[in-house]
Every structure is written in structure tokens, then in C-alpha cells.
Computed example of a mutant assay.
Amino acid sequence: MTTVSEQQWRLASTALAEQTRRFAELVRSTDPATMCTAHWSVADTLAHVASLAWYYVGLVDREHPPLPVPGFDDYLREVTVDTVADMNDVLLTHLAERRPEPLLDRLCADVDRVLAACAGRAPDETVRWVGDARVPLAGLYAHLVNELLIHGYDVARATGRPWSLPGREAALYLELFMVGVVRHGYGRLVDGGAPPSERRIVVEFRSAYTEPVRFQLLRGRVSFPDPSVRPDVRIDYDPGTLNLVMFGRVSKVRAVLTGGMRVGGRRPWLLPAFLRKFRNPS
């Protein structure tokens, strides 16, 4: 896999600034007490997104005050995709502020700090992330853009507001974050899931916004296959739809029926085994 291009780096930076602005405008237009999910109100959702931006400032600027959670760095190293919900509960317990304006001010200021701290740095420079994964700076941007898009979807759906997941911005999540952690090392982030197998499964993801990306699962590890290896499964996808599926907002059946995803290839029946390992919190 190639490294992050300057064009991708600029796009990710612009997307982070723009989607932060969109999310803030959306939240300002809603009642903070409205429930977005079974457990989170608009205010809780905002606090969650703001906590991530705060955490990311600390990753890229060691002079910035860390999150006020005792032992949080050590705790993060043990987190996997299956325990991210527990991590979020820990954060929201320690960060008790739920007034929208202070949280929005914090979110917007921290995103500005992240962008300023990363300006002039290489997009492939890595930081140690959740689950002891190594994430490139461009991947941090892409992850936070996806959080803004997904949780903006939650807020908009609960409050009847319009909200889109623009394809090029949504595509950054797989293109820069998922590719980035596989390239640089995902630590224990996806521990568990599918048991190790000697059977190689190669899945190709294709969208109108990115170059095709292939991942392989072999002996319990996700990596990039040799270019000569034919894919077993091909997924043609709309990036916004794929992200909503990966984070449990839209079912795979609905995504296929509405045309947001098309699954094909020589052995499409191998996809479920691949996705038991290559998974996200949902």
C-alpha cells in the first residue's frame, strides 16, 4: 500500500474542519435532552465527540492537559473494539459537563488545536492509540471525521433534521484510518472475533471515491495481500452506507437492498468470517 498523499492529507484536514462546523450547527439547533440512542441524549453524544477531540489534542501535543481520567493511558492499551463502549462510559462518567455551549466551544477549539499541532507534519507520522494500535495523523483526522458524521446521523435521525454523509469525506475512514492501522499495526484492537484459520480470505473494497483496497485475513491476522492474489469477495459500496453498516446504524440487508453495497466475487460466502475479525464497534 502507498503512503498518504498530500492531496489526501489536505482533504482530510479540510473535511475535519468542515464536518466539525456542520456537527456544531446541527447540535445547536436541537434540544440537548432529546435521546439519540437507547442510552445517550444529544448532550451525551456531544460530550462523547468532544472527549475524543480532547484526547486527540493530547496525542499530537504532549504539552496539552490530558483528559482528567486517572490511569486512562494504561487503560486504553487494553481496549478492543468489543470494549469501546466500556471506555466511552468511563469517559462520560469523568466528564460531567452536559451544557451544549461549553462542550461545543471545547470541541471546536480542540479540533483547531489538533489541526494547528499537525500542520507541517507528515501525514504518516504515527501516534499510539486505543488498543496499542499505531494510527497515522491522517488516520486520526479520518476517525474524527467519521465520528462527527456517524453521531451527526444519530442526532439528525432523532430530531428530524436533514443530515448527509458526503461520499468523499466518509471514504476517508476506510482509506486513511482502517488502512492506516493495518499498515502501521493494530495492536490488540481487534483481538477476538474469528478464530485463526489457515484459509486465506481476501476482500476487495471498491468505491467511486477511492482506489480499490484489498485486505486479507490469514491465521487470525489482517494484512495486505500480494497484488497477484485474486480477491475472494468484492464489495462495491457507497462510503456513507458502508460506515453506517460498520457501526450498526444500518443493516447489511438494507444496505444491499437500497444499493448502498453490492457483494460479489468468487467466494462471497466467506465475507461473514472475514467481518468477524475486521470489525468496528456497533
Score class of each variant (00 low, 15 high):
Thr30Val: 07
Arg21Leu: 13
Phe215Leu: 06
Asp82Arg: 15
Arg77Gly: 15
Asp110Trp: 11
Pro136Leu: 03
Ser228Ala: 11
Arg168Trp: 12
Ala38Tyr: 14
Ser197Met: 00
Leu217Tyr: 12
His48Glu: 00
Gly192Ile: 06
Arg266Ser: 10
Pro231Asp: 08
Val203Phe: 08
Phe274Pro: 05
Val130His: 15
Val155Glu: 12
Phe205His: 09
Thr258Ala: 08
Met35Arg: 09
Arg266Lys: 10
Gly58Pro: 02
Pro227Trp: 04
Ser41Tyr: 04
Asp124Arg: 01
Glu169Gly: 04
Val79Gln: 15
Leu92Phe: 01
Arg28Lys: 05
Leu144Met: 08
Gly167Lys: 06
Glu25Asp: 13
Gly180Ala: 05
Tyr141Gln: 07
Arg221Pro: 00
Val213Thr: 09
Met1Asn: 00
Leu103Phe: 09
Asp232Lys: 06
Phe177Tyr: 15
His184Met: 12
Ala170Asn: 08
Asp82Tyr: 12
Glu211Asp: 14
Arg234Val: 14
Trp40Gly: 05
Glu18Ile: 02
Arg279Ala: 15
Val60Tyr: 05
Leu148Val: 06
Asp105Glu: 14
Arg219Ala: 10
Ala15Arg: 07
Ala117Ile: 03
Gly193Ala: 07
Pro227Lys: 00
Lys252Trp: 08
Arg230Leu: 07
Ala43Ile: 08
Tyr153Gln: 10
Leu26Ile: 00
Gly131Leu: 06
Ala170Trp: 14
Leu67Ala: 07
Gly185Trp: 12
Ser223Gln: 01
His184Ala: 13
His39Leu: 11
Tyr55Asp: 10
Val90Thr: 11
Thr80Arg: 14
Asn88Pro: 04
Arg168Leu: 13
Ser41Thr: 10
Ile150Tyr: 12
Ala47Pro: 01
Ser228Val: 04
Pro136Asp: 03
Glu25Cys: 02
Leu148His: 15
Leu165Ser: 14
Val135Leu: 09
Asp82Val: 02
Val127Ala: 01
Ile150His: 11
Gly220Phe: 09
Gly187Tyr: 14
Met35His: 03
Gly259Arg: 02
Val114Gln: 11
Val253Trp: 00
Arg10Ile: 01
Gly58Arg: 01
Val114His: 07
Pro281Arg: 07
Leu270Trp: 12
Ala17Trp: 10
Ser29Asn: 02
Gly71Lys: 03
Arg214Cys: 13
Arg206Gln: 05
Ala47Val: 00
Ala12Phe: 14
Tyr173Ile: 09
Arg214Asn: 07
Asp232Ala: 10
